[in-house]
Simulated assay, not measured.
Amino acid sequence: MKTILWATLTANGNYAQSTPENPPKKEALEDFAIHAKAAGNFIVGRRTFEGMRGNGGPGPFGDVDVVVISKNAAEIPGIKVARSPQDALDYLQQKGHQTALISGGADIHNSFLGQGLVDEMIFNVAPCLEGKGLNLLIDKENYQYKHLELLDCKPLGGGVVQLRYAIDQ
């Protein structure tokens, strides 16, 4: 199964965090919806899912399989709760998906990266700087270096630039 990590970064490389004063760029959200529908799924952490869900209903993702990774969340009606990145991938593979879209939460992204479970990365670089932010890490303990192959680079509009990389395995 091909795994694609999707994230929005700030121009200075931090993991972009949304606030009411700094909402996500609509171009990045539209791009996420396109990728989620193409994959037919996305994997997300519980806190990010709760933020996405807002007032409850299925929203624009009613037709995709959503997997929430949480070690202690109770059942979520209509949503698969997985306990680990590998559990999430196993579930999607059993459902017949060829691609898994890993969409959110820095902890979720870092878990997949740290376990070597990412084949490609899509970074939407937002035109802003963030003073204090989260980083994507392949290993929190040791210095590691992974080579990437640039697959595509394109403007999405609104100053957002998308970079798509393959990770050399």
Rank of each mutant, 00 (worst) to 15 (best):
M1R: 08
W6Q: 13
W6A: 14
W6C: 12
W6E: 09
A7Q: 05
A7S: 15
A11Q: 12
G13R: 11
A16N: 09
P23C: 10
K25H: 14
K25G: 04
K26Y: 00
K26C: 00
A28H: 10
A28W: 07
A28K: 02
A28Y: 03
L29T: 12
L29Y: 04
G40Y: 05
G40W: 08
G40P: 03
N41F: 09
V44C: 08
R46E: 07
E50W: 00
E50Q: 13
E50Y: 08
G51A: 11
G51T: 14
M52Y: 10
R53P: 07
R53W: 04
G54Q: 11
N55Q: 13
N55D: 14
G57L: 01
G59K: 01
F61G: 06
G62V: 07
D63W: 09
V64P: 06
D65H: 12
V66H: 05
V68N: 05
K71R: 15
K71Y: 04
I76Y: 13
P77W: 03
G78E: 08
G78K: 11
K80I: 05
V81H: 10
A82T: 05
P85R: 05
Q86I: 10
A88H: 04
L89W: 05
Q93P: 01
K95L: 12
T99C: 08
S103V: 09
G104E: 03
G105K: 03
A106P: 07
A106F: 01
D107L: 06
H109Y: 15
H109S: 04
G116K: 11
L117K: 03
L117C: 06
V118T: 08
D119R: 00
E120V: 01
M121A: 10
I122E: 06
I122R: 03
I122P: 02
F123K: 06
V125A: 02
C128Q: 02
C128I: 02
L129R: 06
L129Q: 07
G131I: 07
L134T: 14
N135P: 00
L137P: 02
I138E: 03
D139A: 09
K140H: 14
E141D: 15
Y143L: 14
Y145H: 10
L148I: 05
L148N: 05
E149N: 11
L151N: 02
C153G: 08
L156S: 09
G158F: 01
A166K: 14
I167Y: 06
Q169N: 11
Q169F: 03
